[in-house]
Design a protein around this nucleic acid. Structure first.
Lengths: 66, 66
DNA sequence: TCATTTTGTCAAATTTATTTTACATTTTGT
DNA sequence: ACAAAATGTAAAATAAATTTGACAAAATGA
């Protein structure tokens, strides 16, 4: 699964730590999530989408391998 | 987190087993997911949304406790 | 009613997500 | 160039998701 977390952070001018605090996870969760090392839960996806004011599909995208 | 999986299954006339096969998970995953016993991964949420032709937010909704 | 399908549930095993702590590397601003 | 902030990364521990197999209960249709 691909994601555009880094882009959304840039748009909203947030550091990984800022974002982590806003959705109540650790900074490492943001960091590894952002680099595609694992698939986040739907709760996290919804929280991010709400925070950034976009649909989940605009941040997370399925790949062939999913 | 709340979900409307059962409703979408009814609309598309799919059994839990049908749906499980379509998104490549076990039937128990659908069953426990549907009854809110755990939070599915974002990959599963995206697959369901795509299958049902609706945004993720129309199937999964955050609650106060999330 | 009877047979079949569908759903609920449970326990154990496995895989995957998430946290915590810690440190190295890179970037940013002055 | 320097200090501070931000990011990358790693290992160990814990929590949570997902699978498998199996069986009981409920719903469906002939």
């Amino acid at each position: 699964m691909k994601n555009k977390i880094k882009v959304q952070r840039a748009i909203h001018n947030l550091t990984q730590d800022d974002l982590a605090k806003k959705i109540a996870v650790s900074r490492q969760t943001i960091n590894t999530m952002e680099s595609g090392k694992y698939v986040p839960s739907t709760v996290l996806a919804l929280k991010m989408a709400r925070l950034f004011g976009v649909p989940v599909e605009e941040i997370f995208e399925l790949e062939e391998t999913d």
